[in-house]
Amino acid sequence: MKTPKTLFKNCCEQAVFSNLHQKYAKDLHDFIYYKFGSAYNPKDKVQEAFMKLWENCEKIAPDKAKSYLFSVANNTTLNVIKHNKVVLKYETNSRPSSSDHQDPQFILEEKEYLNKYQKALSKLTEEKRVTFLMNRAEGKTHKEIAELLGISRKAVEKRIYTALEQLRKEIQEI
């Protein structure tokens, strides 16, 4: 689906707004989550960003809405962080695997591993972490990520690769 560029000059139309929400709300949420972790309430940031978009709908063309949403959500989160270096905390949202017949030691090792993984992730730059997790955790293609973040596919490829290498080394060292 293409953004109706010529049809609507701004985002004030309910249908346009809903459409934008449907298209970008989840990606925006994931972006904030991967970038800043769960501590900053990505869902609220999504709401804030869309509210801002609605309030300024007259000034924003639908094809500019995506970058507007991403920068608003990014900035409002940064405002909360106020430049403090934060320890990222990810919620591992599923148990290592269907646990019934797992060896307790194996479970422990898995847990250890995820802890290390988490630490390593938090040491990545925001850019690399967002790109890597959008690809590996969210399963987005290079192309989709490139469009979403407004960077080239080559840059996406590089970020994911360096993130992977960095993670590997980090986890080995720990």
């Binding site: 990810y90 949202n93 988490q118």
Partner: peptide, 18 residues
């Protein structure tokens, strides 16, 4: 590394309620 990345998947985002 690739497989375990899924554990860090962002929590479900409920578009409807949003």
């Amino acid at each position: 590394l690739s497989e375990q990345a899924r554990h860090f998947k962002a929590p479900q985002f409920d578009e409807q309620s949003s």
